[in-house]
Design a protein around this nucleic acid. Structure first.
Lengths: 344, 344
DNA sequence: GTGAAAGCGCTAACAT
DNA sequence: ATGTTAGCGCTTTCAC
């Protein structure tokens, strides 16, 4: 099997002893070219599987129809779902995705951005790495924007950068969940956070506090469990369960919800009779553990779709210097077996 | 904030009233250029963040340092892990990833390949969509290879295409699992397959049969459950549990292992005392359900790394027309609570 | 030591 | 109706 080299305009031009320009025009169905020339060239091109060299086109247009995607952690189910949404819309609109995983690292995020920019893409869709949110160093984003490359941020965003954003209504999600606890008779509501460094973590905490305040329940800092490299979740849970009366726990992401459920059960509490649990992110895990965990769905796929549409919209209307917008995706509560039913 | 347009060689040349060629050589540290010219140009370039336009470079080199990745389903934990491995090595070696999801569809696979080829990449890493394996139509792969674009296939492969491959030792994995059942006293071993259309599904079935035959246990076709659009898993499981004596079940992927566990428990069987269960794919789910499921790990990350190394190896040694190789990744059994311990 | 020119594949303005 | 030319940004002979 011999390698068929890709055929170019030049090859076709030689074949018919016409100029390259004629071939180009013929293939683009220009009115300048006679019908019969057009048809013979088009036929020949078809037969020989002519495909324009898109690198050459890109050089000319300074457009690549490529979107750079940077995701903090693809093993996180929420991000996987967002990615599915991004991929779906991108493919529909004929865009390619070029993807890096920042692995929550600032270094990696910066270098990924460099790498991707070097391969020339039209814009970015990204969610900020945890380390970057801690460092609060966003200059690589600003530089990118200054170079004329638009960014759409999703989920983990920052006010410091002006760009299009798609976020989840985290505050409201936590607020609603906390209210749900309150309405089903819970009063001592703990919160388990592994993500207090993230913008989303902070918003969720705000929503929790707001609901408590509205219900005239004092915020007890001892019930706010911050899991980090120095404080593992099991220890924190044990301490609070042994020292405090707790009848509900709001977990700020999927994995800690599962861990919390385990610990609560192993301590002999009945779920949801003694302790109710709600967790953020409606992944596979909460649905499959026993009892199945009530979750707050963030509609990852829809979020990804929305972000991609926003970016493509901006790319294809560069003339219109519209200002940047932030879209908010509503969460909703998916009731399962770790919460009591609402009273009617 | 004004848009700083990207600076080009031409801009620098104008700045110093030298030719573009001189600038190019200076930046490439050519011996032809005087030390002082070099240093002033290099400094200027640095200060103004000169970055070569990689599209122009690509045009010239016909290399893009970009790898196309096609994954059947990113929501499948195994593929997500493979993707992590691919991404890791690609980034290390300075390659970009341009990714599509075939969604198990033949159409989408073909068009994804077209889309990706148009954006000019150096090679592909892919796993074949289910529908494609059913159709057995692989000409899009052959065409790509004929165009001089190498492919590395992973996990789901076909003998019909000659290319580099990385596969899991599926047959041996199923063989070992089945033997494990036999050694722990099981005799009536069922198999639950949702993937009999896939190459990997067939291999796993072979391993199962081989182990049975070696142990002189007759293969009972009624114990081979093929789940498909017409036969849902719950019904098949009920029928076999009601009509047959079963003391072990080998599930060919993650989700059906979880479903099987549920059904077996809900029928009142004790796991593993009455019925043992082993499932392929060591994802989050099997580890977190109760009881935790014994699984066969396919080392997805390592597989992804291996595939990527193979492709880059081939890309960077195009001269050496080495023949194609197939690497086999060993599986191993991760014992949890759905199997009895081995007797010593 | 520096520059002019060709070429990578293609398009588009401008001849003929 | 067809061809010529320039140019996208860069590298690489080959002259000077």
């Amino acid at each position: 099997m011999t390698k068929k080299k890709r055929i170019t305009l030049k090859d076709i031009a030689n074949e018919f002893n016409v100029s390259i320009a004629t071939v180009s025009k013929a293939l683009n169905d220009s009115y300048e070219i006679s019908a019969k020339t057009k048809s013979k060239i088009q036929q020949y091109a078809q037969k020989h599987h002519y495909k324009p060299n898109s690198i050459a086109l890109n050089l000319q247009n300074r457009k690549t129809k490529t979107i750079g995607v940077i995701i903090p952690n693809i093993l996180n189910h929420f991000f996987t779902k967002v990615f599915v949404g991004i991929e779906k819309v991108a493919t529909e609109k004929g865009y390619n995705l070029i993807t890096c995983i920042s692995n929550e690292s600032y270094e990696k995020e910066v270098s990924a951005m460099e790498l991707l920019k070097n391969s020339a893409l039209d814009g970015f869709i990204l969610s900020i790495a945890e380390e970057t949110q801690i460092k609060q160093n966003f200059s690589h984003f600003q530089n990118t924007i200054n170079q004329g490359i638009p960014i759409v941020m999703f989920d983990r965003v920052t006010d410091e950068i002006e760009c299009d954003k798609v976020i989840v209504n985290d505050k409201e999600g936590a607020y609603n969940a906390t209210n749900y606890f309150i309405e089903t008779g819970c009063k001592n509501i703990a919160i388990v956070s592994t993500i207090h460094n993230l913008s989303v973590g902070k918003l969720r905490l705000q929503g929790y506090k707001k609901a408590l305040q509205e219900a005239n329940i004092p915020v007890d800092e001892a019930l706010i469990l911050k899991v980090d490299e120095f404080h593992d979740i099991d220890t924190l849970l044990k301490i609070v369960l042994d020292s405090k009366k707790v009848d509900a726990m709001l977990c700020l992401e999927e994995d800690s919800a599962v861990s919390t459920l385990r610990m609560v059960c192993s301590k002999g509490y009945k779920v949801p009779e003694d302790i109710s649990i709600i967790g953020f992110t409606n992944g596979v895990l909460p649905r499959h553990v026993t009892p199945a965990i009530t979750t707050i769905s963030q509609h990852g796929i829809y979020l990804g779709e929305t972000a991609t549409k926003m970016l493509i919209e901006r790319l294809e209307n560069e003339d219109s210097e519209t200002s940047h917008t932030t879209k908010v995706i509503k969460t909703n509560l998916i009731e399962r077996d770790t919460t009591k039913p609402l009273p009617y």
